[in-house]
C-alpha cells in the first residue's frame, strides 16, 4: 500500500524508549516510533521476539518498566498514557481504540448474541435506544460480511473467520481512531485469511484509522501495512517502509525472515 504519510500532522501515538521487563527477563527494550493518523504499522518477528509485549505496552494493557507512550486525545492534547486514570484509560479503550485479539473468543462475549456483541460499546457509551443499537449492529455486520440473519445467533455458532469478522465489527462500531491487532489472521485457513485481509484493508482505508498490527506473517504485513518494524529478542532491528524492508532487507535477521518465506 502506498503511504498516506503526512509528516506535518501531529503523530497519533508516540512511543519513547518503551521497555518492559518480566522480572529479569526481557520483554521488549527501548522501542521508539511515531504512528500518524491513518497509518498502518506492522510489527513482525518470530515467536518470543517481544511483539505482543510491545503491543500490550502500547495499548496500556501492560505497565512499562521505563519509557513512555503518548497518545493524541480527541481534544488535541498529547497525553502520557501512564498519567491517565483508570476511568479515562478504560473510556479510551472502548471508544477511541479497538483491540482485535488473535483468538476471537478473547475479544467477544461468547454468551451473548452477535448483535449484542456489536452493540455493547454503544450501550457502554450511553445509547439507550434498542432499535438504533440493533440497526447499527446490522449495518456493521453487513460491512464485515456476516449475514444479517445471524444477528441473534451466539458467536459459538460462528466459524472462526466469521468470529474474527464479528470481533472487528465490535471494535469498529464506535469509529475508533486507532486499532491494535494481535495476529488478526492467525489460526484461519488461507482462503479465509485472504478475505479477512481484504476486509481489514478496505475498512482501514475507508475509515481512515491508524492500525498497529502484530504478525509473524510477512504476507499480512506486506498487504496491510505502510511501515514495518522487525523485532528480534525484544529489540527493533530494522524499521522502514514496508516495500523497502521486504524487498531490500538490510539486516541479516530481516534477510533471514524474508528468505524463509516459501516461494510458491
Amino acid at each position: 500500500m502506498s503511504a498516506p504519510l503526512n509528516e506535518t500532522q501531529a503523530p497519533l501515538l508516540s512511543a519513547e524508549n518503551v521497555t518492559r521487563f518480566y522480572g529479569t527477563r526481557l520483554g521488549c527494550r527501548e522501542v521508539s516510533f511515531q504512528l500518524y493518523p491513518g497509518e498502518v504499522l506492522a510489527v513482525v518477528g518470530e515467536s518470543g521476539s517481544g511483539k505482543t509485549t510491545l503491543l500490550n505496552c502500547l495499548a496500556a494493557r501492560l505497565s512499562l518498566s521505563s519509557g513512555a507512550v503518548r497518545y493524541l486525545m480527541r481534544d488535541g492534547v498529547m497525553r502520557d498514557l501512564a498519567s491517565l486514570g483508570e476511568a479515562e484509560r478504560r473510556f479510551l479503550m472502548r471508544t477511541d481504540w479497538g483491540f482485535v485479539h488473535q483468538n476471537p473468543s478473547d475479544g467477544l462475549r461468547m454468551n451473548v448474541s452477535a448483535g449484542a456483541n456489536v452493540g455493547e460499546r454503544l450501550m457502554a457509551v450511553g445509547q439507550r435506544h434498542y432499535g438504533q443499537i440493533r440497526g447499527s449492529a446490522l449495518s456493521w455486520m453487513e460491512r464485515v460480511e456476516v449475514p444479517a440473519d445471524r444477528v441473534d445467533d451466539s458467536p459459538r455458532a460462528f466459524s472462526g473467520g466469521m468470529r474474527q469478522r464479528l470481533q472487528i465489527a465490535r471494535n469498529l462500531v464506535t469509529a475508533p481512531r486507532l486499532v491494535f491487532m494481535d495476529e488478526p489472521t492467525g489460526g484461519l485457513d488461507v482462503s479465509v485469511q485472504a478475505r479477512l485481509l481484504d476486509l481489514i484493508r478496505a475498512l482501514v482505508a475507508e475509515l481512515d484509522m491508524a492500525a498497529l498490527i502484530v504478525t509473524h506473517d510477512l504476507a499480512v504485513a506486506r498487504l496491510l501495512s505502510h511501515r514495518i518494524m522487525v523485532m528480534k529478542e525484544g529489540e527493533v532491528v530494522e524499521e522502514g517502509l514496508t516495500d523497502r524492508v521486504l524487498d531490500d532487507p538490510r539486516e541479516p535477521y530481516t534477510q533471514l525472515l524474508v528468505s524463509s518465506i516459501l516461494q510458491a
Partner: peptide
C-alpha cells in the same frame, strides 16, 4: 453498559 447488553439479549 453490560447491564443493558443483558436487556438487549
Amino acid at each position: 453498559g453490560l447491564m443493558h447488553v443483558k436487556l438487549y439479549e
